Amino acid sequence: MPKRQLHGLVVSDKQDKTVVVAVERRFTHPVLKKTVRRTTKFHAHDETNEYAVGDMVWIEEHKPISRLKRWTVIQGEKKKRVL
């Protein structure tokens, strides 16, 4: 079975080798028929501490690395930083 891949925004990078990624999903509400946005946060392993808050990343399922980490960062786009 293939591993799931999700696309999200890094919202925290304070932990060592870990980033918190917010993944947004959209669906139509069954009663109201409006498009609803829901956000889920995933802890993902970032071996090189490469990504920072604001970067867009792809994460992939992985065997448990720690109590909360079950995902790894596979690629991403860095946000333009103004110095």
Rank of each mutant, 00 (worst) to 15 (best):
M1T: 11
P2I: 07
P2Y: 05
K3S: 05
Q5G: 06
Q5P: 02
G8Q: 01
L9N: 09
V10F: 03
V11M: 00
K14M: 08
K14W: 06
Q15K: 15
D16Y: 09
K17M: 12
K17G: 05
K17H: 12
K17R: 14
T18I: 15
T18D: 03
T18L: 01
T18C: 11
T18M: 03
V19K: 01
V20D: 00
V20Q: 04
V23T: 05
E24I: 06
R26M: 06
V31C: 02
L32V: 06
L32T: 14
K33L: 08
K34T: 12
K34G: 11
K34N: 11
V36T: 11
V36R: 09
V36M: 10
R37V: 07
R37K: 05
R38V: 15
T39E: 05
T39I: 15
K41W: 00
F42V: 01
F42Y: 11
H43K: 14
H43Y: 12
A44P: 02
A44I: 10
H45C: 12
D46M: 13
D46K: 12
D46S: 13
D46L: 10
T48C: 14
T48R: 15
E50A: 15
E50S: 15
Y51R: 07
A52F: 05
A52R: 10
A52Y: 03
A52M: 13
V53Q: 05
G54S: 04
G54H: 06
G54N: 09
D55N: 10
M56C: 14
V57D: 06
V57R: 03
V57W: 02
W58N: 12
I59Q: 03
I59V: 13
H62I: 03
H62K: 08
K63S: 07
S66Y: 01
L68P: 00
K69W: 04
K69M: 14
R70K: 11
W71Y: 07
Q75P: 01
G76A: 11
E77T: 13
E77F: 14
K78Q: 13
K79H: 05
K79S: 04
R81P: 08
V82Q: 07
V82T: 15
V82E: 06
L83S: 10
